[in-house]
Design a protein around this nucleic acid. Structure first.
Lengths: 115, 115
DNA sequence: CAGATGTACAAGTCATATCTTGTACAACCT
DNA sequence: AGGTTGTACAAGATATGACTTGTACATCTG
């Protein structure tokens, strides 16, 4: 049995949609190494604090952020495992050498699928 | 100078947003190996032909699909290179062993960033 | 040429996302 | 206790997305 780590099972959808926003990717870059309080994250943006808070919420729900409460502050950091679905997706679509060769040949000699 | 292949430079955004939809991922699975006409792709879905056509449009704009016209039909296939931005994103966020260790230690002994 | 087929384009509907302003509230400070 | 700080929650405006139905159009076929 696979151990259920935390938060949701994180459908690939949630993760991909979360990553599809530049602001959110920027947030992830900020907390990639260090653990940062929400306010400090928000300070990096022109957006309002609330807007950033909402982005954090999306990332958290996608399992991409870990929250730790420290007094009145909330500290966030990247949860790397959450990227696994993306990794799987990539490997699903990254063709092995054989497929690439076949593709190359087909491209050179286009032969349409029969009618 | 890097050679400009085709279509747009494909911002990571377009690719990620295109991938964030299950229908579109399914389309990519279909054309991952074989080249398929739009109609045949559409036939795999409960959606209308037009809806699928729109999904194809999104994928094409993201650079994920190559189109080839063959008589009245249009044949599509996955353009693997378009996944490069995703690969880059992953490697950007995938921590090296040292970072992972640091993280593990921090998790074991939480020490907040100084006030 | 006329009809059938394969596909995209166009416009409209409805749901969802992103942002804003306003507010609540817990934790800290004196 | 009362003010200040850090942050989320709530509600609303507007934009964007994913569909639908209807239509246009090029290509093939008889």
């Amino acid at each position: 049995m696979a151990e259920r780590k935390q938060s949701t099972p994180a459908a690939p959808d949630a993760v991909l949609r979360a990553l599809a926003d530049p602001h959110r990717r920027q947030i992830l870059r900020l907390v990639k190494h260090s653990e940062l309080p929400a306010g400090q994250i928000a300070a990096s943006f022109t957006l309002t604090q609330q807007a950033v808070s909402q982005h954090i919420g999306v990332l958290k729900q996608a399992g991409l952020l870990t929250e730790r409460r420290e007094g009145t502050r909330r500290l966030y950091t990247l949860r790397h495992e959450a990227l696994d679905p993306v990794r799987e997706l990539l490997s699903e679509f990254w063709p092995d050498a054989l497929s690439r060769l076949k593709k190359a040949v087909e491209t050179a000699h286009p032969r349409p699928p029969k009618r």
